[in-house]
């Protein structure tokens, strides 16, 4: 029994090593998907957070509706809507961009709520201090409130980035050869599903680990003022 385990881990390790070039490409695709979609999601999130705090009814309604729809529907459905839905119209978008847009719109809704909370957690005294030296409300937002809010948002943002990274596996369903897709393809080719799934899990773990390091490094860097 014990020897079976040892020999299986030997096999797993060997497969892991042998497939490294295959997964290198897949990992790069996963990273590209995640990075681009999160980058867009941050802007979407910031935009809708700002809309929500304007207290202008139309803007607030717009932001709430967006968040309601995106949070209330599964990500895979959203990705498929971008993929199939847009192919009916004149816009033919690739699997890559439908996954990027799906992930960006999805994460953007959660990031909007994260930013809104952190912006509102910065005391009104900061805004008043900015306005009292003659800054406009946008200058005060940009120079005084947002830098502090962003710092406060980092831990939950990091969490959301991790979710985004793992959710990029859903891009497999629109034909992208990212980590999960490669592992299931190899699984069906070799009938050795478990080994290939475990390998994909190892890659995700490594990537999440690196992302966690990056977030905590940024947190430390921004903590100089404490």
């Amino acid at each position: 029994m014990f020897e079976d385990f040892i020999s299986y881990f030997g096999h797993l390790w060997q497969t892991f090593i042998d497939s490294k070039w295959l997964f290198l490409e897949a990992t790069l695709l996963t990273l590209k998907l995640t990075a681009i979609s999160i980058f867009i999601a941050i802007f979407i999130g910031l935009l809708f957070a700002l809309l929500k705090i304007t207290k202008i009814k139309l803007f607030v309604w717009l932001a709430n509706t967006y968040i309601f729809v995106v949070r209330g529907t599964p990500l895979i459905v959203q990705i498929f809507i971008f993929y199939y839905g847009l192919s009916y119209g004149p816009l033919q978008i690739s699997g890559f961009w439908s996954a990027v847009l799906g992930l960006a719109f999805h994460n953007g809704a959660y990031i909007a709520e994260i930013f809104r909370g952190s912006i509102q957690s910065i005391g009104n005294g900061q805004t008043e201090a900015g306005r009292s030296i003659g800054m406009t409300s946008w200058q005060t937002m940009k120079r005084i409130v947002l830098p502090q809010a962003f710092r406060r948002a980092l831990p939950p943002l990091g969490n959301q980035f991790i979710i985004g990274l793992k959710d990029s596996s859903l891009a497999a369903f629109v034909g992208l050869a990212e980590i999960f897709n490669v592992s299931t393809t190899m699984g069906s080719n070799t009938f050795d599903f478990m080994t290939w799934l475990l390998i994909s899990a190892i890659y995700y773990l490594l990537l999440v680990f690196l992302l966690t390091l990056l977030v905590s490094y940024t947190e430390k860097k921004l903590a100089v003022s404490d």
């Binding site: 005391g123 005294g125 900061q126 008043e128 201090a129 900015g130 306005r131 009292s132 003659g134 502090q148």
Partner: peptide, 21 residues
């Protein structure tokens, strides 16, 4: 904003910008 440039204000709780030196 123009008026406030000429009328300075000091607050009870200082309201310094904590992320700036």
């Amino acid at each position: 904003n123009k008026i406030r440039q000429r009328v300075g204000m000091v607050f009870q709780h200082f309201n310094l910008f904590p992320h700036k030196t």
